[in-house]
Design a protein around this nucleic acid. Structure first.
Lengths: 357, 357
DNA sequence: TGACAGAATTGGAACGTTCCAAATACTGAT
DNA sequence: ATCAGTATTTGGAACGTTCCAATTCTGTCA
């Protein structure tokens, strides 16, 4: 049909004004007379004009592309999907649009997508870096004046803003809760020791033990892959211990689920025979049997927060690196053995987000 | 630091060639001499040049922005998250980048994001339309020569390509399976009757019943919101029936979970006392207790497939609307009562994707 | 030496917008 | 009428790229 694009000049011609005036209308300038504005607007509608942001962008020298890039390491993980949704919410209502890419923990992929996004002229970037990301990777971005916000995992050396959940405090409250239930030997299970998140959570465990007046025993810290399989492995080692623990805080929910699996394989019932608490509060946590006691981190909140932070920096031209840690909250369900009072029936209270096609 | 952008002209100057030559190098033209090409490339690296796709794009009149838009109605639903990942995979390795937006079932939001994407010059669009989307909404896009692929839900009136799962066949196999287990009164629970997906699945239910030699009773079809809460509601009505059913196929997994909740609330054990089968095979389906028997649709596969289709159309300039339905597969687990042979212990076989931060 | 073909390079002129400085149109005094 | 002052409008000249037609550079052959 209409082969050629409708341009601002076509509008101008049809409305009997100059292209400059049309441009003024486009940016909602107060300089233009109401009557002309109305006329121009109708003409635009009639001709089916679509704004060419690329062209605009070209003129306004790199400033406002109204695109922000979002890079996550695993979108199939509901934690990150929620995060992306949080970002999308604020970004969208600020009139921006987001590039969303998935790295699947591949550093190369990450480099590629960031480069590609840069070529497209993003005005800011939110990234949950792939494991072992080099802090220097984002140097060129910030040097070019593109604000970067790192979420979930922090990037030690980089001079960028970051927003992570309060891993330390979360673990402290988990440990205190278990101690309050009378547990004395509490293990820390799962996670790879080479990550900042692991360090934080372990530190929280130690200080929680200390606060509860319990001794810290090296043997009770058992690392493993931060996955379900890792959890099975870790609980196996824990049970083999001379004086076996009676409870465990886990690196994350996946590990906690694995721990439950491992317990059942040994005819131990999680919750009743051994207390388990997780970390993250993934969607499955509330629907599982027994429902998982865990530390809720609200990934969507982190996404929103991160996006706000980024937008602020974009608008400010260049804000300096700021780092925020968001509050977490222990959600007591059944797997810690505390939920006994309430009937352990399937929870009616679950408010699932499942609402597929 | 480096305040001004490095442009192709800077490169040209530094390399002692003309901007045209640099441009040629950029697009990998075979016209340019190896030696010059090498020189230009090193200079580009040294000066930290980044390609300005916007500018390029402007010149090549709307053709190839290498951006494709992806619009889904609920990213927090793992079904759609998986779909997005599937799209991302092929799109990314084709050197494109994706705009990903979430409508949350809001038509207005959908209109906004599509408009925004258009302004940014996407070269194609993949969309899982929000409920009650008007087919005409995508008319302008295709008129402008931007290929559109509709996934998951189809858009009756629109002249666009679409790719949906074989809802009919899926339901047929679910019903046959239940009939094979000896059930005679099988209900169809959940879903809103005003959607195409509902119609397809219901049709599958009817023809499955017919194929099994069972009568179709209007009263056994109970619609409700396609959510967990809707499932609770629907099973309530089903049980109140004079001759109550002994099994149900559900509109989707969310409904199926709700049905399980509702059964338990009435002291009926899903699987043992009443057979339940879902649709979608969301991630939670295998970890639930009892594990859900359901129809698996491989959303990631749909995403990949849809992206390939779109890319093909983009490259072809303009391909005509083609519609594909992808195969589905019944996954028998425990909730249908067939899994009895295997011990109903917590499954070791679950391979969860949980592996958060 | 001149002519010629092919290879390699190169100056504009676009693309659709925004910005700037300057022009023009109005308004109400004088 | 004229003037100042404000309100509105307007032609270029950018922005960073690609495309086209034209040019220069090679080497070869008569």
């Amino acid at each position: 049909m209409t082969k050629a694009r409708v341009t601002v000049i076509d509008i101008a011609k049809a409305a009997g004004v100059s292209k400059s005036t049309v441009s003024l209308v486009l940016q909602g300038s107060s300089l233009v007379n109401e009557a002309t504005r109305a006329k121009v607007n109708t003409v635009m509608r009639d001709l089916g004009y679509v704004y060419n942001r690329g062209a605009a962008n070209l003129r306004q020298a790199g400033a406002k592309s109204r695109i922000i890039g979002v890079v996550v390491n695993d979108l199939t993980n509901s934690f990150f999907a929620e995060l992306a949704v949080g970002v999308d919410m604020v970004v969208q209502s600020a009139g921006f649009v987001q590039f969303l890419s998935n790295t699947g923990e591949s550093i190369d992929r990450q480099r590629e997508v960031v480069a590609s996004m840069r070529e497209h002229g993003i005005s800011g970037l939110i990234v949950s870096p792939a494991r072992a990301t080099d802090a220097a990777d984002f140097k060129p971005l910030v040097a070019a004046g593109i604000p970067v916000v790192v979420v979930v995992r922090n990037l030690p050396g980089a001079k960028v803003s970051s927003i992570v959940s309060d891993n330390r405090a979360g673990m402290v409250s988990a440990v205190k809760h278990l101690a309050g239930l009378g547990h004395k030997r509490i293990a820390f299970l799962g996670g790879f020791p080479d990550t900042a998140v692991f360090d934080d959570r372990l530190a929280g465990y130690r200080s929680g033990m200390e606060a509860a007046g319990l001794d810290y025993h090296e043997e009770l810290v058992i690392s493993s892959a931060p996955s379900r399989a890792g959890g099975v492995e870790a609980i196996g080692k824990a049970i083999a211990l001379g004086r076996r623990p009676t409870a465990a805080v886990c690196f994350n929910d996946a590990v906690a689920f694995g721990v439950c699996d491992g317990l059942r394989a040994r005819r131990l019932e999680p919750g009743a025979d051994f207390a388990v608490v997780g970390f993250d509060d993934v969607i499955e946590a509330q629907a599982a049997v027994p429902a998982l006691t865990t530390v809720s981190v609200d990934p969507q909140g982190i996404g929103r927060r991160g996006a706000q932070m980024l937008l602020k920096q974009i608008n400010a031209g260049k804000a300096e690196a700021e780092t925020v840690t968001t509050a977490v909250r222990l959600v007591v369900r059944e797997s810690c053995g505390a939920g006994k009072a309430a009937p352990a029936r399937a929870g009616k209270s679950v408010k699932s987000k499942q609402d597929a096609e």
